[in-house]
């Protein structure tokens, strides 16, 4: 009990003093996940819109695939990316294993289906409202898709945040492809796992508290966004 209290005190001290190790790990986590989510949005928004309003062969299969891969087990994604990037894998020459780039790749694979599936849903709903109008106006396919994506922007933000939440809190995939190397690929979740197993509870707790706060912040933003979209949608 005494120990636990001591660990908490040490953890708060680390946070308040903005400990260099702690700050480095938090920053890398934010960088990796932000990059992954940005890429996932660049891929997922158009893919989702295409699934919603596109008419092309294989659309149904792609739609099923997207939804099925929404809940991929992160360790499996980690394993697959590892196999691709490892010495015996097809992309070995890129030398990406155990780099932040490898972690970004793994997170992109985790997040893109989520963003795409949520985007498809939102765009499909909006298209019910806009379809006749845009057709009578003579909008091109591209104009239709960009109009729908722009007008769904508030909901797309929530899709991006949902993806961010998943990637940020994930540990299995980044552990496998990043290797949790100090000062290189050590992010919050992998550091917590390591420090806890070492019994270094202060740093683990400090990271845990920061992770928790960021997660709460993300979810609070999600809720705020959702309620504000609801109000404008019905106003």
């Amino acid at each position: 009990m005494q120990d636990l209290w001591g660990s908490f005190q040490a953890a708060f001290a680390l946070i308040v003093q903005m400990d260099a190790d702690l700050a480095e790990i938090v920053l890398l986590s934010l960088q990796v996940t932000t990059a992954a989510v940005l890429i996932a949005c660049l891929l997922g928004f158009p893919l989702g819109a295409l699934l919603a309003v596109g008419r092309f062969p294989g659309r149904a299969i792609l739609s099923v695939l997207t939804n099925a891969t929404m809940g991929l087990p992160p360790v499996v994604v980690g394993l697959l990316v590892y196999l691709m990037l490892s010495q015996s894998g097809p992309f070995a020459v890129l030398n990406l294993l155990y780099t932040p780039t490898a972690m970004i790749i793994a997170q992109v694979i985790l997040v893109t289906p989520i963003v795409a599936a949520l985007t498809a849903q939102v765009v499909e709903d909006l298209n019910v409202e806009y379809d006749d109008l845009l057709r009578v106006m003579g909008a091109s396919r591209l104009q239709t898709v960009t109009t729908l994506l722009w007008d769904a922007r508030a909901s797309l933000m929530t899709a991006a945040l949902a993806g961010f939440g998943r990637a940020f809190a994930e540990v299995g995939a980044v552990m496998i492809v990043g290797g949790n190397i100090n000062h290189v690929t050590r992010v919050m979740t992998t550091a917590i796992a390591l420090e806890t197993s070492k019994g270094a509870l202060a740093l683990a707790l400090a990271l845990g508290i920061v992770l928790l706060m960021i997660s709460i912040l993300i979810n609070a933003s999600l809720m705020a966004l959702r309620s504000s979209t609801r109000t404008t949608a019905h106003a």
Binding site: D132, L133, M137, T147, W150, D151, R153, A154
Partner: peptide
Amino acid sequence: SLALVFQTPVVLRRSVHANLNHALKIY
């Protein structure tokens, strides 16, 4: 060269000005 107005007005989730600008762009 035809246009259609519905019973339930369909407006884009943008300002009034941007609604007109976007329509003109499409036209």
